[in-house]
């Protein structure tokens, strides 16, 4: 089992993802340059957080047009597991692998904070190790995490269980007060229709070791590893 971590100019969570996969979970990992045109040998592709291309034009827009993304799209079409974290989520929406868009936070500020996140769907390859509606602690660090999609899309996501994570109170209620960025329905993470592509704003790779203050994100990696085993 090998994880490929895509590196765009401006990615800054690539090493964190590599570290967690390789040193915390002892799985094989490699970096994939944004100009590469092959994902051969990889079982899971991670688009890490960061500020690809300086967030020029729109977050994730320019990265979504880089050569490696054609491969990521075909990899996903073949059923390969693709995880987009933060800027990776933004890139996935810009590339059309996930619906909707990540807009500027409603408070206009960059938010860096640990937040409670509820697992709304634990029947995905990315969340199976969590309990249904389990609330875990993960950090967010973004200025553009305000998930938006048209009414029909939101309804479709909700009805088909494609909302994987929502911002909630520690008790598990998705209130407006618990919504850090204004995302519709408190959406923190969604999957594609097939369930093999997940985009999420919280950072599981920053919450996988007790030394970092939270292990709420471990479940994402454990789920992927279990799905690939």
């Amino acid at each position: 089992m090998k994880f490929g971590i895509v590196v765009f100019p401006g990615s800054n969570c690539d090493h964190d993802c590599y570290h967690v996969v390789k040193h915390v979970f002892n799985k094989d990992a490699g970096y994939v340059w944004h100009k590469d045109t092959s994902l051969k040998g990889y079982d899971c592709v991670i688009l890490p957080g960061g500020f690809s291309y300086g967030d020029y034009l729109r977050t994730g827009a320019i990265a979504s047009a880089s050569p490696v993304m054609n491969e990521v799209v075909s990899f996903a079409k073949k059923g390969g597991l693709v995880l987009g974290i933060c800027n990776g989520f933004q890139i996935l929406t810009e590339a059309g692998l996930l619906p909707g868009a990540l807009m500027r936070n409603r408070g206009l500020k960059f938010i860096c904070a640990h937040v409670p996140v509820r697992v709304d769907n634990n029947a995905t390859p990315f969340t199976a190790r969590y309990g249904k509606n389990e609330v875990v602690d993960m950090p967010i660090a973004h200025a553009d995490g305000n998930y938006f999609a048209d009414v029909d899309t939101i309804k479709k996501l909700e009805d088909s269980g494609r909302i994987a994570f929502r911002y909630s109170t520690p008790g598990g209620t998705a209130t407006d007060d618990a919504n850090p960025n204004g995302a519709l329905l408190n959406i923190a993470g969604i999957t594609n229709e097939r369930g093999n592509v997940l985009g999420m704003m919280p950072h599981p790779e920053r919450a996988s070791e007790t030394a970092l203050g939270s292990i709420g994100g471990r479940g994402v990696f454990e789920s992927i590893i279990s799905a690939l085993s």
Binding site: L57, R58, A61, T93, G100, A101, M103
Partner: peptide, 9 residues
């Protein structure tokens, strides 16, 4: 359609 605008928003 493909880059300059995001037609979702």
């Amino acid at each position: 359609e493909r880059l300059l605008a995001n037609t979702v928003i």
